[in-house]
Design a protein around this nucleic acid. Structure first.
Lengths: 157, 157
DNA sequence: TAAAGACCCTGTAGTGGTTACAGGGTCAAG
DNA sequence: CTTGACCCTGTAACCACTACAGGGTCTTTA
């Protein structure tokens, strides 16, 4: 099959497939005479595996490691377990941070009574006041909250 | 004061300050004869405000909006409240996704009994098997988990 | 007076994980 | 023989920075 079908079967964008090849997650394939990439079922499985792991918020680096284990079936799998444990740790810490953050935002919102001049807006005043104090949140390396665009393939199938 | 002092006072990197100027969050300042940026206390306040909002995981776009409200003290502040509500929504959704994700990872980890050949590794098998089914997680636009580097200024002060 | 070192400037490229687009080539159907 | 669907490479954009190259300025010390 060609790249388009692979992409469709694994709910991915064609450009993403090529990106994964460049990034060393998918192997460089054989090509047709006209230089088209040729894939088989094992590529569908591998790409689906990658997408599933991405859905679990693993980094490409983590996935690369998992794939190395999967590619060496006679290796010890303790590393797989360790990787997963570490990743669960990432997620747990992230959840904790976001929860405290949400509480801060809620408190902040309470200070806004209703439509009034921004001069008296409790939210802005609070934000400004807290900014003067030693850092409350921050420092904890945190990122995200804001989405990436939906995969245009994901829903429509 | 010059950019270095501003950065120190607001727990920021010098390059970040210049970046915020380019991004329109900090105004272009007056310069000394030798072309050095000159700042005052109001810049410290503004920059600290920005950093505090970033600590609450707001995007620069959201912060820009907040600053516009703060810069127009006679405007109605309902927009501030709406922005905050929306942002709390982002955070809430993100937490939910991460929690379901964590549960999936935990279940996955249970399937790994102990050190054995990866050929029999329950984790890898599970991941591969699930990848064949219609997407479980994914699709929900989610991002993050993996950290950004700590602010080198943040702790040491 | 000169040199060291701390600071400042601009401009550009890198990070991660894609997405998008320009500018071309290939192939099957009408 | 043209249309349109598909493929190719290469490069730039997104976000919020960070880092570095290659220079200029200012202060302190020998």
């Amino acid at each position: 099959m060609k790249i388009g079908e692979l992409a469709r079967r694994a709910q991915t964008q064609v450009e993403t497939v090529r990106y994964y090849e460049r990034a060393g997650l998918l192997p460089e394939t054989t090509r047709t005479e006209s230089n088209y990439r040729v894939y088989g079922d094992k590529h569908v499985r591998r790409l689906s595996f990658i997408r599933h792991c991405r859905g679990l918020d693993m980094s490409l680096d983590e996935i690369r490691t998992l794939l190395r284990f999967a590619d060496a079936p006679d290796e010890n799998c303790a590393g797989v377990d360790a990787l997963l444990e570490a990743h669960i740790g990432h997620v747990t810490r992230r959840i904790k941070t976001l929860q405290s953050l949400k509480q801060q935002l809620r408190n902040l919102r309470k200070t806004c009574t209703s439509a009034q001049k921004t001069r008296q807006c409790g939210i802005l005043n609070e934000l400004a006041a807290r900014a003067r104090q030693p850092s409350t949140a921050s420092a904890e390396h945190v990122r995200g909250t804001h989405g990436i665009r939906d995969n245009p393939n994901a829903a429509s199938g």
